[in-house]
Amino acid sequence: MTTEATEPTGSSSAGTTEGAPAATAVPTPVPLYAELRARIRNEEPVGLATVIDGLHVGAKLLIEPAATPLGSLGHAELDRIVTRDALAELEAGRSGIRHYGPHGETTPEDLVDTPVVRVFIETWAPPPQMWIFGAVDFTAALAKVAKVLGYRVTVCDAREIFATRRRFPMADEVVVSWPGKLFDQRGGTLTSRDAVCILTHDAKFDVPAVRGALATGVGYIGVMGSRKTHETRLERLLEAGVDPADLDRLMSPVGLDIGARTPEETAISICAEIIAHRTGRVAPSLRDSTGPIHA
């Protein structure tokens, strides 16, 4: 080892064995699995960093937003840098390997002639949300397919007799409310990973739902209805003061052009469009074609 002794961080004990400065002592194992499991079960955002190559293979650090990390990868500065990176990975919903110097060095020149520590950063983000407006037959099928894809599904309708748990047992939540109210209360939680699907064909319900969705950062907004319905809806939205530029965000008629007919087929077509929308792949959306919607 040719490097100068690094400044010991925090309370270092003097007189450690040669070649093993206090700062790189073998991390004390903390029972992290129980902590990790509890967060995964509660669907709380959490990251786990594991040294997979280099000094202290198997050492772990559990990271969560706005909390002190648990465990250690063997060096306080490495822990600090990995925590920073893990929070970014968590935000982006990614998992992968990153390379560091033994003290958390990341710039290429700092990594020359330095043993590299490879760290696998795995993150568990809360499931994406899908809000479905309108308690209709298509809603049950869409909620079912969305659950298969791992969404947390909320069904919302203002009509108490339709918006019941009994009709939508597969949904995580059934809310009896006007759309505007739900967006006012929780619209801020919607991100680019989430989807809003408006399945009502009723102007007094879908105009406020579309307006509410457009005011959020939600990644996908699908609005059901025929091409004719969509035309008249656009007029009403403009009358209601919606910015014409925002209307480009609406996927309507909703779904891919696969000739879907039944509620179940339509649900597949909508979810496939959501996937293509997220991945940026070109798939034939009904919005961008002109023919009949159904096969």
Binding site: I52, S95, G96, F120, T123
Partner: peptide, 15 residues
């Protein structure tokens, strides 16, 4: 056992 990396056409993602 956890998948930590894939190259090319891999069936499952890291994690």
């Amino acid at each position: 056992a956890r998948v930590v990396d894939i190259e090319g056409s891999g069936p499952r993602l890291p994690g």
